[in-house]
Design a protein around this nucleic acid. Structure first.
Length: 557
RNA sequence: UGGCCUAUAGUGUAACUGGCAACACGUCUGGUUUUGGUCCAGAAGAGUCUAGGUUCGAGCCCUAGUAGGCCAACCA
């Protein structure tokens, strides 16, 4: 009954404080503002869950706004991929917006700033402007064009807009303070001239606004109340406020920018630039390669939207540097998959086992539970016969008593089937075990209720009947990098740390019920891990991706 | 010769206006189990970067250090 009183993170605290200090709940509005220059990754998932989560919590609208002010790097294809990812994560945006929707308004406001004497056209090179900018510890110097007459600025700016000036010949700069301790306040560039077509406005514009000029104004136009971004934008806040104040009037709601720490995930990189390199240099096959920490890669790998949302919510939000271990993400995957995934049997590294006292031409249908975590999931029939595959690592000629599997002279249960005893190991000329002969206890059939069926044995193995088994390609994925933070070494390139074994492809033998499994369907291969049918899969060539292994408290001992 | 931000178990977050540091993951025990999974029970693990100060009392407030991060794209 009583709502559990969960502690607020600092972002929620800010909102609560604002609500207590004059904001109306109806004024709350948020936005998620990706630049369409790459695919969304797990770091963005945190931001998405933060903003849309806030929208849900306060019943406030959340816009999806594409920050498309740089036509050189942005593409329509990315817009579509981003929309798909946000939807897949389970969120609905109030409005689909684009910074490019506001190009005309931004231009009109820029003209106003020029008229006020708050902006001027600078005709120096990029290098000259940079040189005059000073350093964090030394003040900058004024551009020789800083005092250009307003009428001249107006004329030039219009010429720039009309494409009558060469690309990059001029820029429009805000006139603020060349000696500010904040480098961003030293007359920042508002517009640059680019004769490049834009994915939405085509060739309409020859000047494009810079991030600082476009972002806050877009928030203001949409009447976003809280604009959340990552920590590196903190110094931009002063500029953000300066621009918004310039175009707003007394009594209007001004958006406020607040910053949170980006989430870093261990054993991977969370930067669009670096992910792009992985794709371009063919370290991975695509943006949605299951090894990529992109939303699309995680989806293909078999992560559920719920597991990603839970992960984002559980790790929370903060302001300090952080490195979250991938094992935390893997936990979220197992937690969700355990409850929702049907169990099946698949043998990754097959070893043939022959039950010598089982009739040669006999096949039985045995009953197997689909998911012990979900009573509603029912059961299915699986074929059993004289020859079955078991996992190579499940048999040893000799082993200590900690080995709860099959060894010569000892018994073990075949899941959903019979208790067997290993009698003999058949080897090839090199001494490799190629076949195991064993006998079964006919009275021990699972679920038969006999005394023999209730006997306790050391272990239970999964298996697949040889004549009924279906071969399947299984892609075993591992972490993409061998170290926690591949970017931590200044002397080395992060690609030096790529894990050469991040992908291993094998042919497994799986139970026949999997024959019709469709792309994105998820299963637990019992005793092994969670697997997801890849988009490359077909009935004649099944392909599974390993999402994550089962937790294994034995392996490390 | 600067400005801004941050500092709590191995990791990530908590601790409402100051009241003997909590939760999750991980680790370790034990139990249940036809998955060495799940589930259940329990344990270890920080005295909150350091030094001062205010206070009856400070992780929370103040001061000074220290450490880390960010800031000099016509990128976002």
């Amino acid at each position: 009954m009583s709502e559990e009183k969960k502690s607020l993170n600092f972002i929620e605290q800010i909102i609560e404080d604002d609500l207590n200090n004059g904001y109306n709940k109806e004024q709350l509005k948020f936005r998620f503002p990706p630049e369409p220059n790459g695919f969304l990754h797990i770091g963005h998932a945190s931001s998405i869950c933060l903003n849309f989560g806030l929208g849900l919590k306060y019943n406030a609208p959340v816009n999806l706004r594409f920050d498309d002010t740089n036509p050189i790097k942005e593409e329509k294809a990315y817009v579509n991929a981003i929309k798909k990812d946000v939807e897949w994560l389970g969120f609905k945006w109030a409005k689909e917006c684009y910074a490019s929707d506001y190009f005309q308004q931004l231009y009109d406001w820029a003209v106003e700033l020029i008229k006020q004497g708050s902006a001027y056209v600078d005709s120096q090179s990029s290098e000259a402007i940079a040189a005059q900018k000073g350093t964090p510890t030394e003040p900058g110097q004024s551009s020789p064009y800083r005092e250009r007459p307003i009428t001249e600025n107006l004329e030039l700016f219009e010429a720039m807009k009309n494409g009558e000036t060469p690309p990059r010949a001029h820029v429009l700069r805000a006139k603020i303070d060349m000696s500010s301790p904040n480098m961003l306040m030293r007359d920042p560039v508002m517009y640059r001239c680019l004769h490049e077509p834009h994915h939405r406005t085509g060739n309409d514009w020859h000047i494009y606004p810079m991030y600082d000029w476009a972002h806050g104004e877009s928030d203001f136009i949409e009447q976003v109340s809280h604009s959340f971004c990552t920590l590196e934008f903190q110094p931009h806040r002063e500029l953000y406020n300066w621009f918004v104040e310039k175009v707003s009037h007394e009594g209007e709601l001004l958006p406020k920018q607040r910053e949170f720490a980006r989430r870093n995930l261990s054993h991977t990189v969370v930067s669009k630039r670096k992910l792009l390199r992985l794709v371009e240099e063919n370290i991975v096959n695509s943006w949605d390669d299951p090894r990529m920490p992109t939303i699309s890669g995680l989806r293909r790998r078999g992560f559920t939207a719920a597991s990603i949302r839970n992960f984002a919510n559980d790790i929370g939000i903060g302001k300090r540097e952080n490195m979250i271990d991938v094992s935390r993400l893997e936990f979220s995957a197992r937690e969700d998959l355990n409850k929702t995934t049907p169990r099946v049997m698949a043998v990754l590294n097959p070893l043939k086992l022959i039950i010598t006292n089982y009739p040669e031409d006999k096949t039985e249908q045995l009953t197997a539970e689909n998911n012990p975590e979900d009573p509603e999931s029912g059961s299915r029939q699986i074929p059993f016969s004289r020859e079955i595959y078991i996992e190579q690592e499940d048999f040893r000629e000799e082993a200590n008593r900690k080995f709860f599997r099959l060894k010569l002279g000892k018994e073990v249960r075949l899941k959903n089937a019979y208790i067997i005893k290993a009698e003999k190991a058949i080897k090839d000329d090199n001494g490799n075990i190629i076949e195991v002969h064993c006998t079964y206890d006919e009275d021990s059939k699972s679920g038969s209720g006999t005394e023999a069926s209730k006997r306790k044995v050391k272990g239970t193995l999964h298996w697949v009947s040889v004549p009924h088994a279906i071969p399947a390609e299984v892609r075993l994925y591992d972490r993409l990098f061998t170290v926690e933070d591949p970017t931590a070494h200044k002397e080395k390139d992060f690609l030096d740390f790529v894990n050469p074994k991040s992908l291993e492809v094998i042919t497994a033998q799986v139970e026949p019920s999997l024959k019709t499994a469709k792309a994105l369907e998820k299963f637990q291969f019992q005793r092994i891990g969670y697997f997801c049918v890849d988009q490359d899969s077909s009935e004649s060539n099944l392909v599974f991706n390993r999402t994550v292994t089962l937790r294994d408290s034995w392996k490390n001992k």
